[in-house]
Amino acid sequence: MNPWLEGLICVLLLVGSGFTLVGSIGLLRLPDFFTRLHGPTKATTLGVGSTVIASMLYFTTQHDGLSLHELLIPLFLFITAPVSAQILCKSAMQQRLKTTPKTRGKPWQL
C-alpha cells in the first residue's frame, strides 16, 4: 500500500479512537449530568466519524471498487446524536437533576 495513504489512515484511526476515549473520559469525570452530556454526544460522534472514514479509505483502496456505504453510519449518528441529547436533557430537567453550584442560569421547570 502507498505509505502516504497508510499514514493518513493511521492518523485518522488514532484521532478517532482518541476522541472516543475523550468522550468517555468526559462522561466519567465531569461534575453533573448536564456537563456530562457534552462528552458523548459530540466527541464520541466525531471519533466514530473519523474511524469510519479511515475504514472507507482502506476498503476503497484495498479491495477493488468504491466502498462508500460506511458513510451511512456517521450520517446517521450526526442526525441522531442531537436528538438523543435533547431528549435526555429534557428528561433530566423534568426529573429536576441537580446542577453544579457554579452553573449560571437555571433550567426551566417542566
Binding site: 458523548p40 460522534t45 471519533g47 474511524t51 428528561s91 426529573q95
Partner: peptide, 16 residues
C-alpha cells in the same frame, strides 16, 4: 439519566 447516557456512549463505542 446518567445510566441511559452511559448506555448510549457504550453503543457508540461498540460501533467504533
Amino acid at each position: 439519566s446518567d445510566r441511559i447516557l452511559a448506555l448510549d456512549t457504550l453503543n457508540i463505542n461498540a460501533i467504533a
